[in-house]
Amino acid sequence: MEMFKSLIIILLSSVLVNNYVLSRFLGICPFLGVSKKLDQATGMGIAVTAVMLLATAVTWPIQYFLLDKMGLGYLQTIVFILVIAALVQMVELLLKKFSPSLHKGLGVYLPLITTNCAVLGVAINNITDGYTFLESMVSSLGVGLGFLLAMVLFSGLRSRIDETNIPRPFKGLAVTLIAASFISLAFMGFAGIVDALFA
């Protein structure tokens, strides 16, 4: 029960309180780039969640059973980025071969994710936070879902921005960032909610 509770806390806090996009600024590029339409935002969000889970499932054992055992902790960054890049490529090839329909939906987003700082960030953070394997997986799931939530919310806002008349210098990225700032401000309201729920 105690473990279950701690897992729920990790999940909720990584979705709402420590949302990677809105409060930690990881994965801003896809957040701004692929959030124009709802279907694309959803596709990207699901793909990121899947890759994060996969990346954590692979990098956690590598860190604890390979790098730490052999005293190679300083190679973390290089090993993680290579493993994640290779993994994403492999998943894309497998999807293309075995499930073309899924590849059509999600596959196009996969190469974008290879060098995404949110994926590398969650892999490294799980190690620095000292999570167990189960906790790491739950935290990756939460971060992925938080990313999906932010993308979906923001794509709704983006479609409204596109229809309004904005002063010339603010057109494009400037107004997008300011809109993102307001969503982030709204998410700040979640600070403390997790502690309050389980107090």
């Binding site: 010339r168 210098p169 603010f170 494009g172 990225l173 400037a174 960032l177 700032s181 982030s184």
Partner: peptide, 30 residues
């Protein structure tokens, strides 16, 4: 805090556009 970063960044991008009077190859969108 986090939202302030995005706000300042957005305003600065717009400011750079004004200063360079639109000559900077401003990205139309991301």
């Amino acid at each position: 805090k986090a939202p302030g970063g995005m706000l300042v960044y957005g305003c600065l991008i717009a400011l750079v556009y004004v200063i360079t009077s639109g000559k900077a190859p401003l990205k139309k969108s991301f």
